[in-house]
Design a binder for these strands. Structure first.
Lengths: 243, 243
DNA sequence: CGACTTCTTGAGGAGACTCAAGGGTGGTGG
DNA sequence: CCACCACCCTTGAGTCTCCTCAAGAAGTCG
């Protein structure tokens, strides 16, 4: 699991060679295991680090003064956590384990050295960051410009695409370790309203959602509701044909 | 203007040396002048490039199938435009001139070479990208978790901070080349509702807003309404003390 | 001067929120 | 083994924010 998961995040851009993978793994601390509900690092913590999620699910979120909380993103095995915090003195978001997880920390100082020793990894991290920016832009659009049903549908569609990328055997059913409270914090609605929204999706035979098991019944309708734009990733020029 | 503006964007992280600035400018095409309302590049255009905004204001936005439009970000002199698109086959956003502007394009192929020749610039671009991710995260929180007044207040506060960074002489009055329609597209409300929100801010003596000239009357109240988190930027370790 | 864009105001309606309460499930301790 | 607690899901009722439709006023450019 360890080996495969760590490389998944890079595959959209064509993958790394063995040398680069070795370089990257050399920076990572030994994997730690944390239980469900554990806080990897808390919003406001000084000198934030970057992490590699080796197994399990995490969520990163930002607390709002009024008591609310916004989930920024849900992470799966192979994702890099906490990158945005590298530009800040204090961690901007809280990272919480949604399931039991395995993570390793990446030494910041060594990461910077890597920009000199492995420009190819630097390019990759740069590109991943741009991809994440587009992801955030699309979430902004979804939340600012569409109603409750579309927002919830968009979350399901994106999670499904992401899960399929990591676990290709998944088809229409998936386990999602999110409570309705989490979902509400993802889409910017209240728990009560999210509950009613899900029930509408059930009534309309778009999906079933029991406990934490989601089954998509009507893919077409779900994608129509989600209103997500089509995005095609691009590799850096010099890689064209080398992979 | 040209010289100063191009370096502004880098200053939060300590600034570049003359050699790095020369490297970066060598990549840029000769500056082009475009009139107000011009489209620098359109959403969906293939092979998106990066641009350096030398003078004027631009806005990047994403169209929604239902006819709406979401403004992702407003740019000032010294900003880099279109970076997120580098990871995509097609441009994710439309970049439009809010005023007459001066821009130059940055050659993508040369940019990648720079990752090998000038790792320090690569680090800087990487860090700027992380900063932008945090910026987007904070916007997501504002729009998903706060009401109309707070969202509008947050836009004003952020614009003011940004303008002060570029034009330190600005105090409480500033020229903002945004229509109420633009503002509505930034905060995810309708034009009508934004209008009523601004009028409430006027009634409460928080600010005045005539034509495109904004004057902040009550900074404290505006910042309270905006509910923006405090963020402190951080420079990469090896720069500590070198600048 | 006319056409267009921008701002403003009114009235009615829908989506989302708040407050409130009840039921199911799993874990913990007596 | 059962009682209790914590967490999660569900439902009801009333309210308010924000939207839609509509139209008029004011400013701007050719």
């Amino acid at each position: 699991m360890d080996e495969r998961a760590a490389t998944v995040r890079f595959q959209p851009f064509g993958g790394l060679g063995p040398a680069e993978i070795a370089d990257l793994k050399a920076l990572a601390t030994p994997p730690r295991h944390l239980p469900k509900g554990a806080i990897v690092r808390h919003e406001g913590d000084p000198d934030p680090k970057m992490y590699l999620l080796i197994d399990g699910w995490t969520a990163s979120s930002i607390a709002v003064p009024n008591g609310n909380s916004q989930v920024i993103k849900v992470h799966l095995a192979g994702d890099m956590l906490g990158m945005p915090g590298l530009a800040m003195e204090e961690a901007p978001d809280t990272i919480r384990a949604l399931t039991p997880i395995t993570v390793s920390m990446i030494d910041t100082r060594a990461l910077w050295r890597l920009f000199t020793s492995s420009p190819r990894i630097a390019e990759l991290l740069f590109l991943i960051s741009q991809e994440e920016r587009v992801f955030l832009m699309d979430r902004l659009v979804s939340i600012a410009q569409t109603g409750g049903i579309s927002r919830v549908a968009a979350v399901i569609v994106r999670l499904h695409r992401k899960i399929v990328r990591v676990f290709p055997s998944v088809t229409d059913s998936m386990e999602i370790p999110l409570t309705q409270t989490d979902l509400a914090d993802m889409v910017g609605l209240t728990l009560v309203h999210v509950n009613r929204t899900i029930q509408k999706l059930r009534r309309d035979k778009v999906l079933t959602w029991v406990h934490q098991s989601v089954k998509i019944l009507d893919f077409g309708e779900l994608e129509t509701l989600a209103q997500l734009p089509v995005r095609t990733l691009r590799a850096p020029p010099q890689w064209k044909g080398t992979q």
